[in-house]
């Protein structure tokens, strides 16, 4: 008799991800797969993927999927959800996608209170294009377009963008939480946040948003375990963890 403590989620295909070793995308993708299985979302769910390191993610899941243009995932998801509000639409975006190219799209999806779930991977860097500066790059953090010794400087590039706080200001966004995946406990907390955000969509509430501080060891030029520490040491100081807004009760 075998009793499984942890088994690869069923919705996953056999594909090996194209992510680098220690990449947070892999952890969040896995939590999504676990929730798809646990919440039975394969039947009625549509995943909307972005451009960036996760642009090949559709092939990891036996799920209906739409791979949007850069930044346009919330617009495409608006079309999908408005065409058929009975579907569970999960939008997944990175920081180049959501904060740079798609700032207008995410803001206006929030302004309209689109009833879908947005998972935002904030790793403070452009992964796929080769470690260029993101709008979420920390001050002083180096990137190929914000080189050493100065890294990102205010005069040139302004300040890191706090999306979970910005979106929480919008009445159409009923839930906004920032989590991370740099320890076993926080991975469990991240899954809880994602589950809540998806459940709010299934309950027909407004937009739910989860920002995940995610390690990018390659982009940050660090060993993976060092990248986990960097989230604690640097990232959480600029991007505090926690529930920023929960208006799910009022939205009833």
């Amino acid at each position: 008799m075998r009793k499984y403590v942890y088994k690869r989620p069923e919705v996953f295909t056999d594909a090996i991800t194209t992510y680098c070793g220690g990449c947070g995308h892999g952890i969040v993708n896995k939590l999504m797969a676990e929730l798809i299985d646990e919440m039975g979302l394969q039947e009625n769910g549509i995943l909307v993927w972005p451009i960036g390191c996760s642009c090949l993610s559709d092939r990891y899941y036996d799920m209906d999927a739409y791979m949007a243009l850069h930044g346009r995932a919330p617009a495409a998801a608006t079309g999908i959800k408005r065409a058929d509000p009975s579907k569970c639409v999960i939008v997944y975006q990175g920081d180049g996608d959501l904060v740079s190219e798609g700032m207008a799209e995410i803001m206006h999806a929030g302004i309209r209170g689109e009833k879908f779930t947005v998972i935002f991977i904030n790793n403070a860097i452009y992964g796929m294009t080769g470690a260029q500066m993101a709008p979420t790059t920390l001050l002083g953090q180096t990137a190929t377009t914000a080189p050493a010794p100065l890294g990102r400087i205010v005069d040139n590039s302004g300040y890191p963008v706090k999306m979970a706080e910005i979106l929480a200001e919008l009445p159409g966004v009923i839930y906004s939480e920032r989590v991370t995946v740099n320890s076993p406990q926080r991975i469990i907390a991240c899954k809880k946040a994602l589950k809540k955000a998806i459940q709010l969509q299934l309950d027909g509430k407004g937009m739910s948003f989860v920002e995940v501080l995610s390690p990018c060891p390659t982009g940050w030029k660090m060993a993976p375990t060092k990248a986990l520490d960097w989230i604690d040491d640097e990232m959480t100081k600029v991007y505090p963890l926690g529930v920023i807004k929960d208006a799910s009760k009022e939205a009833e």
Binding site: V48, R72, A75, G79
Partner: peptide, 17 residues
Amino acid sequence: AETEVSAFNMVAGAVAT
């Protein structure tokens, strides 16, 4: 929509269903 960029992408998402 907020822009035509968005409007056209909304059409793309909707017809995909």
